[in-house]
């Protein structure tokens, strides 16, 4: 053993002490609370998604003639295929939820304020990537929801003034859904978006390391209390990871991912809805005309993106120092209301 460790030491001169020094930053005491794991949760789920996604890609065939059958093969015939596909689907749902909750936590604790404005913007990009990867993901199954979801999504894009038709053409690889559409969604889902997300995550975590985690506490003394990343916080994350695996496995077993009807380009289903995380957008599109809905949603996302600076201006020039909290509560209530509304009606 001594010989082996010496051989490794000669080539990689890192001892446990130095490694601990490199990775061990003091973590503020408030991170002992479980809800502050919400940042690590989507990252962990992302790793599950990469792993299960690679597994699914072994059998998935991205073409209109073979996509549905290949997913059916994964679900019904490949050993444990149902499990891996269900894990992928449930982890996606959890990932979207965790990213939204993480963002809400950051928002309501004001953790996006100076000097962390840029990291909030990186986080916003990660949110957009997460939603897009979710959208391209369920488009790949080539069931009715996939086909009509992609078609509606492309038509939404088309209603953006000036660049709309170009975006639609780029999305579908043509003026309408065709043989070359699915490979495009697949490459976006399985290569481009994951790579972009890995880069963004790297920047996100690097900025956290540079700026440190926001310190909370009623008193200065409380703010200064810290504990070790290794092993204390790492153990918390490991326990969280194992718990997630148990919950996801249970959900995958009890409520496995199923196959909807095969895509029929000639028949739109009577009731069609996207995944739950697009209910807000879907209801919004029903409330306003196409272009108004798209432009207003784009504007809301833009405001969210620049919120640290808008909030900074509000705090500087008005006396409403905590206006962001009330705006946030209104926003969350609106999101919940639109989601529940869309979920509770057929049309």
């Amino acid at each position: 053993m001594g010989v082996v460790s010496r051989w490794i030491q000669d080539r990689i001169p890192l001892d446990a002490g130095r490694l601990r020094e490199l990775t061990n930053e003091p973590v503020p005491n408030h991170l002992k609370r479980w809800w502050f794991c919400l940042g690590g949760t989507p990252a962990y789920l992302f790793v599950i998604q990469i792993f299960t996604g690679i597994m699914l890609a072994f059998y998935y065939q991205p073409s209109p003639r073979t996509a549905y059958e290949s997913v059916a093969y994964i679900t019904d015939e490949a050993a444990f295929g149902w499990y891996l596909r269900s894990m992928h689907k449930w982890a996606a749902t959890f990932m979207v939820a965790a990213v939204i909750l993480h963002q809400m936590r950051v928002y309501f604790t004001g953790a996006y304020r100076k000097p962390r404005e840029l990291n909030w913007m990186v986080g916003m990009l990660l949110l957009i990537c997460t939603l897009t990867i979710g959208f391209t993901g369920y488009s790949l199954v080539y069931e009715q929801l996939s086909f009509w979801g992609a078609s509606v999504g492309a038509n939404i894009a088309e209603s953006v003034p000036v660049v709309g038709p170009l975006v639609k053409n780029m999305m579908l690889a043509g003026e309408s859904y065709n043989d070359r559409t699915l490979p495009r969604f697949f490459i976006m889902h399985a290569a481009i978006l994951p790579i972009v997300m890995i880069v963004l995550l790297f920047i996100h975590i690097t900025l956290i390391r540079i700026q440190g985690v926001t310190e909370f506490g009623a008193t200065e003394e409380e703010k200064k209390k810290t504990f070790n990343f290794f092993p204390d916080h790492l153990y918390t994350e490991i326990i969280m990871g194992l718990s997630l695996m148990i919950i996801l496995s249970a959900l995958a077993t009890v409520l496995p991912a199923e196959m909807g009807p095969r895509a029929d380009p000639l028949t739109t289903p009577e009731v069609i809805k996207p995944e739950w995380f697009f209910y807000v957008m879907f209801r919004w599109l029903k409330l306003f005309s196409g272009t108004v809905a798209v432009i207003s949603s784009g504007f809301i996302v833009f405001v969210m993106f620049l919120w640290p600076f808008i909030d900074g201006a509000i705090r500087k020039y008005t006396r409403a120092k905590e206006a962001s909290v009330w705006i946030g509560i209104l926003g969350v209530l609106a999101i919940i209301a639109l989601t529940v509304w869309e979920a509770s009606v057929a049309h």
Partner: peptide
């Protein structure tokens, strides 16, 4: 836990 998960993945890759 992860060993079992890895075993499941390996079995999945082997033709059904």
């Amino acid at each position: 836990g992860y060993g079992a998960f890895g075993a499941v993945a390996a079995r999945y890759l082997y033709p059904a």
